[in-house]
């Protein structure tokens, strides 16, 4: 068969003619075809399921929409209403309380546990599995167990324990000051297993000769930790700081499940932004207002993450 017009299909001219169908295309063209075949599905999926709704949230935040009638454009009214709402500022404060206390405490705990667990040989796998278990547990189940812990005596485990030693009873979830820390403890405990596993992987990646060389040079345990282990663990730490911060800024499950009678209560003192969004959207059906809150949350997450990456960047 002879072709009148040579179709190179992107292949270099002057290449040998003949061969099968696949030989008509250059290696480069074929590789691109493969790449885009595999990428097509996720690209399509993300566009429809993720990017479009995200962008649409920005549009909806400028409308008044209760699901029944088409959205009505109202400009920045939702935002002015939000910033004038004292509830929002309470929620804002709560959200940052989860972040500012939750992230450092959980990272400190998980690093300490990982650091010592790394040295334990006896029952290492079993202990590690125990720490990881909460991560595999449903947030709802976990929250309800902790809720039981926080009950008044004789039902609640902690108050029972306090009573046994003659210590005063604590209101925990029923108090406007203690509720948020009580929920935070649950959230920290839930994420601990994952952070420990990641920290241990980071610790394992440091060659043992680094420590041996340091011991020969005369560094003590504390100096080794401060001058070798922590700096070399920085990429792991940055990863966990960002991930954990996003986790605390988006906290919802624990709060919702531990305060079901009055979600985010008492008096909104435990309510995080995500719960407020949920209530605006699905209790009040103020979709535009909820979308505006979503945009605010998105901007907070973006700024915090970029800030952390910038602060913890490699300064070399």
């Amino acid at each position: 068969m002879s072709l009148q017009v040579e179709n190179t299909n992107g292949a270099a001219s002057g290449r040998p003619k003949g061969g099968g169908f696949a030989d008509r295309f250059s290696m480069h063209t074929k590789r691109l075809a493969w790449i885009w075949t595999f990428l097509a599905l996720p690209v399509l999926f993300y566009s429809v399921i993720r990017f479009y709704p995200t962008l649409d949230a920005f549009r909806l935040s400028l409308t008044d929409w209760n699901l029944m009638r088409p959205p009505k454009f109202i400009g920045f009214e939702n935002y002015t209403k939000l910033f004038a709402d004292p509830d929002f500022w309470q929620v804002f404060k709560n959200t940052f309380a989860y972040l500012i206390f939750g992230t450092p405490i959980s990272l400190f705990l998980s690093f300490t546990i990982a650091f010592f667990l790394d040295r334990v040989r006896f029952g290492h796998g079993f202990i590690r599995a125990l720490y990881f278990m909460p991560f595999l547990t449903t947030a709802a189940a976990m929250a309800w167990v902790w809720r039981w812990f926080y009950q008044p005596a004789p039902i609640g485990l902690i108050n029972d324990f306090l009573a046994y030693f003659g210590l005063p009873q604590q209101p925990f979830l029923r108090s406007t000051t203690q509720a948020l820390p009580s929920i935070m403890v649950t959230a920290i405990w839930a994420g601990l297993g994952f952070q420990i596993i990641i920290f241990m992987a980071g610790l394992r990646a440091i060659p043992t000769t680094f420590y041996e060389a340091a011991r020969i040079d005369g560094l003590g345990e504390w100096a080794i930790l401060r001058r070798i282990t922590l700096p070399l663990l920085k990429p792991t730490t940055v990863f966990l700081v960002v991930l954990s911060s996003i986790g605390f800024l988006r906290i919802f499950d624990q709060v919702y499940n531990m305060t079901t009678n009055d979600p985010g209560g008492p008096l909104g003192t435990t309510k995080p932004l995500v719960l407020m969004i949920y209530q605006s959207a699905f209790s009040s059906y103020q979709m535009g207002y909820a979308a505006a809150q979503t945009v605010v949350l998105f901007l907070i997450l973006l700024v915090i993450s970029l800030l952390q990456l910038w602060i913890l960047r490699d300064k070399s």
Binding site: P207, T209, F210, E212, A213, P231, L232, K234
Partner: peptide, 9 residues
């Protein structure tokens, strides 16, 4: 040491 054991940071 064989792997030098010098600190990358």
């Amino acid at each position: 040491f064989q792997n030098y054991a010098i600190y990358p940071h």
